[in-house]
C-alpha cells in the first residue's frame, strides 16, 4: 500500500513517431481507489503497463511512497494486477492459487494459511477452496484473481485492467460491489482502468479522464460529471453525453461553446434555442408523471433534454416546435472550461 506519483511520464513505442503518453503527471493517495477512464486508443493500456513495470517510461519518473521506481520491474515494485479475463494457475485449486504468490516469497506455512483463510473469508471463497478454476463460474474465477492480487500483505498497488469486461452484466454490479467493499476494508491503493464511465464513476474515489493528448481532468466522480474541465470529458461522461451549442446562441460572453447536461435543461414554448421534437424515449415515471429523454432537432444538431414527457403518448408531440431553456451550463473556450453557472 503506497501513494503513487507520476512526474511528467512519457512513453513512445520504439516503432512509433508519436508519443503514446506525453508528460503525464498524476498523484494518487495511499488507499485511494482511482479510475483511469478513456476511450480506446487513449493509451490506457500503455499507462497500465508503465505502472505495472512491463514497460519503462521513455522519460519522467514514477514514485511509490517517494521512492523512484521508474526502472524497477513490477515484481520489485510489488504491484499486483487483475486482467480483463481471469488469469489463474489452472492446474492448482483455489487455495493453492491464492497461496502461490506467498509461497514464492518463502513465507512460513502458518502465515500462508492464515493469509489465505483471511482472503477466502473476505471474498466468500470458503466453499470453493478445493475447487479447480475449471469448475468455477467466470464471476468466481475473477474473484479468485482479485484475491490473488490482494493476498500479498506487502502489495503496493493493485491494477485492475477492465476486470468486468468478461463478466456478464447481471453479476457485474456484484463483483464491483465486492471490489468496493474489499478496497475500503483493506485500504489498498487501486487503479482501475476502464472505458466504461459508469464503472469508473461508481467505483472510484477519483477519476482521471485520459485522451490521446494526456490526462484532461482528475477529480471526484461528481466533479467530473458536473463540471467537466474539457469538452471531451463532458462529451464522454454521462449517458447521453453533454449537449454543446455555440456560446452566442445563449448570449454567454467570453466563451466559444456552452455545454449542458440533458437534465439541466427544460422545454418551454419560446427560448433563444429553438427546435423540433424528433423523438421521445420513456425512461420511467416520477410522481405519476411519465418522464424520459426528448430529442430536439435544432440548427446545432440534436439536443437531449431529460424531463416530464407531454401527455398523450410518445408520438403525440413529435414535430412540435419547442424552445430549450438552459438552467445551468459550463462554458468552454478552446475546449477548456472557462466558466460555469451556479444552479439557477
Amino acid at each position: 500500500m503506497a501513494k503513487i506519483a507520476l512526474d511528467k511520464v512519457s512513453f513512445t513505442y520504439p516503432s512509433a513517431d508519436k508519443a503514446t503518453l506525453a508528460n503525464l503527471s498524476l498523484q494518487i493517495a495511499q488507499g485511494e481507489s482511482h479510475a483511469l477512464l478513456g476511450a480506446s486508443g487513449a493509451g490506457k493500456t500503455t499507462l497500465l503497463n508503465v505502472l505495472s513495470g512491463l514497460l519503462q517510461p521513455s522519460s519522467g519518473q514514477i514514485f511509490f511512497d517517494d521512492i523512484e521506481v521508474s526502472q524497477l520491474s513490477g515484481r520489485q515494485r510489488q504491484v499486483a494486477q487483475v486482467f480483463q479475463f481471469p488469469v489463474l494457475y489452472e492446474s492448482l485449486n483455489v487455495a493453492d492459487n491464492l497461496a502461490f504468490p506467498l509461497r514464492v516469497q518463502k513465507l512460513t506455512k502458518s502465515k500462508v494459511n492464515a493469509r489465505v483463510d483471511y482472503i477466502c473469508g473476505e471474498l466468500g471463497l470458503d466453499a470453493v477452496r478445493q475447487a479447480k478454476p475449471k469448475s468455477l463460474s467466470l464471476f468466481e474465477k475473477q474473484l479468485v484473481a482479485v484475491g490473488k492480487a490482494l493476498v500479498r500483505p506487502d502489495v503496493s498497488l493493485v491494477l485492475l485492467d477492465e476486470p468486468l469486461t468478461a463478466v456478464e452484466p447481471k453479476i457485474k454490479w456484484r463483483l464491483r460491489q465486492t471490489l468496493r467493499k474489499v478496497q475500503a476494508e483493506f485500504g489498498v491503493t487501486m487503479i482501475y482502468v476502464t472505458h466504461d464511465q459508469t464503472e469508473a464513476l461508481t467505483f472510484a474515489d477519483r477519476v482521471s479522464v485520459l485522451t490521446a493528448d494526456g490526462i484532461v481532468q482528475t477529480d471526484t466522480p461528481q466533479a467530473v460529471y458536473q463540471s467537466p474541465a474539457h469538452e471531451f470529458v463532458g462529451h464522454f461522461v454521462g449517458s447521453p453525453g453533454m449537449n454543446f451549442v455555440p456560446a452566442d446562441v445563449l448570449s454567454i460572453p467570453g466563451a466559444q461553446r456552452v455545454g449542458f447536461r440533458s437534465e439541466w435543461a427544460s422545454l418551454v414554448t419560446r427560448a433563444p434555442l429553438m427546435g423540433v421534437i424528433k423523438r421521445q424515449r420513456v425512461q420511467g415515471t416520477r410522481k405519476g408523471k411519465v418522464y424520459g429523454l426528448v430529442t430536439v432537432q435544432t440548427a446545432f444538431g440534436p439536443i437531449y433534454v431529460r424531463g416530464d414527457l407531454a401527455d398523450g403518448g410518445a408520438d403525440a408531440a413529435l414535430g412540435t416546435a419547442v424552445g430549450v431553456q438552459v438552467d445551468r451550463y459550463v462554458a468552454f473556450a478552446n475546449q477548456q472550461k472557462v466558466a460555469e453557472s451556479d444552479r439557477l
Binding site: 515484481r75 488469469v87 514464492v104
Partner: peptide
C-alpha cells in the same frame, strides 16, 4: 497475461514452466 501474472507473482522460470 498469464506470463505477466506469473512475473508479478514472483514465479521463477521453472514455476512458469510447471504451472
Amino acid at each position: 497475461p498469464y506470463y505477466q501474472a506469473a512475473e508479478l507473482d514472483g514465479a521463477r522460470a521453472w514455476q512458469v514452466f510447471r504451472y
